[in-house]
C-alpha cells in the first residue's frame, strides 16, 4: 500500500486522535572529520491537527536538525540512530524514498530559513511554484502557471502576474519569504514546519509573515511547528512550546504555563533573557557559558550542567531524568 493510501486511511480511521506528527526518542549523529557529533538525543515532540508548537532554543541546539530528520532531508553525514517518527501513523523513518518524496510538499511541507537561498536563483519564482504543483497538485502543465499566480496572490504579493516572472534576486527578502510560504502551502499540507521563517526580516515584515502563516494554518487546520530562537515570537503564536538545548528537549509545556512557571533552569534563563513588556532592556539577563562540544565522548547526561547555577552532585549521574506530568515534561533532576 502506498504512503498516500495509508495516509487517507489514517485520516478517516479510528486513529483520528493520533497526533499529525509524533516524534519519539529521536537521536541523530553526524560523522564529521573531527569526530562523531551527537546532534540529537532522545528528542520527543508531538503536534496535533490545528495546533502550533514552537521549538525554541539558541543556535546549534538542534532545532533545524530535528526538522530535517523529520523531513528526511539530513545531509549524507547525518544518521538517525534511534527513535521513531510518525506522520499521521506513517513510519517516516521506514518509508521508502519514493513514498517520502510523495509526502514532501504535499502532505508535509517546510518553510526554510534564509528565504532567498532556499529558492533556485536562476528560475522564475512562478515556475518554481508550478514545478511543485505539477509534481503533486494534480494540475496540468497549462493550468500550473495560473494556479501559481493565484497562490502568489494568496500570500499577499502585489501584482502577482508580473512577479511570477521575477527571479529571486529581483525580490526583497520579505517577498522571497512569501514565495517560500506559497511553495510550502501550495498543496495544502497537513503539517507545516516553519524553520526560522522570519530571520533576517525587519520587525514589521516579521509580524506580517507570521500573521500570514498562522492565519493560513488556522484556516486549513494545519499542524504547525514553528522553529525559532525568539521565545517572544513563539509565545505570541504557539499553543505549546518545546525548549531545546544542545540536542536535548529540556522542557515542553503549554505556552501560558511555561511562561508562568518555568521548571527547567534553562527555560527560566531564556525567559529572563527575552525582551517583554514592562521590563527595561537593562533588566535582561544573558545566559552564561556556551553550548557544550557535542563531539566530546564524556558528555554529562544533562548537557546544561556546565552552565547551570543549580547543579547538584547527582546531576552528573546518568541517566538524564525526564519527569512528565499533566502534559508537561522537564528534563531535570532538580526542577524549579
Amino acid at each position: 500500500m502506498s504512503a498516500a493510501a495509508t495516509l487517507d486511511a489514517a485520516k478517516i480511521g479510528p486513529h483520528a486522535r493520533v497526533p499529525v506528527l509524533d516524534v519519539r526518542d529521536l537521536s541523530v549523529e553526524f560523522r564529521t572529520r573531527s569526530g562523531l557529533v551527537r546532534a540529537l538525543e532522545q528528542v520527543s515532540l508531538a503536534v496535533h491537527r490545528g495546533e502550533c508548537v514552537g521549538v525554541v532554543g539558541e543556535s546549534g541546539s538542534g532545532k533545524s536538525v530535528t526538522a530535517y530528520a523529520v523531513m528526511r532531508l539530513l545531509d549524507a553525514a547525518g544518521r538517525v540512530t534511534a527513535g521513531d517518527v510518525r506522520f499521521s501513523g506513517i513510519d517516516l523513518l521506514a518509508a521508502s524514498d519514493a513514498d517520502i518524496a510523495d509526502l514532501r510538499g504535499r502532505e508535509m511541507s517546510m518553510i526554510f530559513q534564509n528565504p532567498r537561498a532556499a529558492l533556485n536563483p536562476i528560475r522564475p519564482v512562478g515556475r518554481q511554484i508550478a514545478d511543485v504543483l505539477i509534481r503533486h497538485g494534480g494540475v496540468t502543465r497549462d493550468q500550473a502557471p495560473d494556479r501559481a499566480v493565484q497562490l502568489l496572490a494568496e500570500v499577499g504579493i502585489p501584482d502577482p502576474r508580473r512577479r511570477a516572472h521575477a527571479y529571486p534576486f529581483e525580490l526583497s527578502g520579505g517577498m522571497c519569504q512569501r514565495i517560500g510560504i506559497a511553495l510550502a502551502l501550495a498543496c495544502r499540507p497537513a503539517l507545516l514546519i516553519a524553520d526560522e521563517p522570519t530571520t533576517g526580516l525587519d520587525v514589521t515584515t516579521q509580524a506580517v509573515i507570521m500573521d500570514l502563516v498562522t492565519t493560513l494554518a488556522r484556516e486549513r487546520g494545519m499542524a504547525t511547528v514553528l522553529i525559532t530562537h525568539d521565545l517572544g515570537l513563539a509565545t505570541e503564536y504557539c499553543d505549546r512550546i518545546v525548549v531545546m538545548h544542545a540536542g536535548h528537549v529540556v522542557e515542553s509545556a503549554p505556552t501560558a504555563e511555561i511562561f508562568a512557571t518555568p521548571r527547567h533552569p534553562y527555560t527560566a534563563k531564556l525567559i529572563a533573557a527575552t525582551p517583554r513588556p514592562g521590563v527595561p532592556l537593562s533588566g535582561l539577563v544573558s545566559i552564561p557559558g556556551n553550548l557544550p562540544d557535542l563531539r566530546a565522548t564524556n558528555l554529562a547526561p544533562c548537557r546544561f550542567l556546565a552552565r547551570c547555577d543549580r547543579a547538584h552532585a547527582d546531576c552528573a549521574v546518568p541517566p538524564l531524568l525526564r519527569q512528565e506530568e499533566e502534559g508537561r515534561m522537564v528534563a531535570c533532576r532538580h526542577p524549579l
Partner: peptide, 8 residues
C-alpha cells in the same frame, strides 16, 4: 535541499 523538501 528545499527543492527536495518540496518533493520534486
Amino acid at each position: 535541499r528545499a527543492a527536495r523538501g518540496h518533493g520534486l
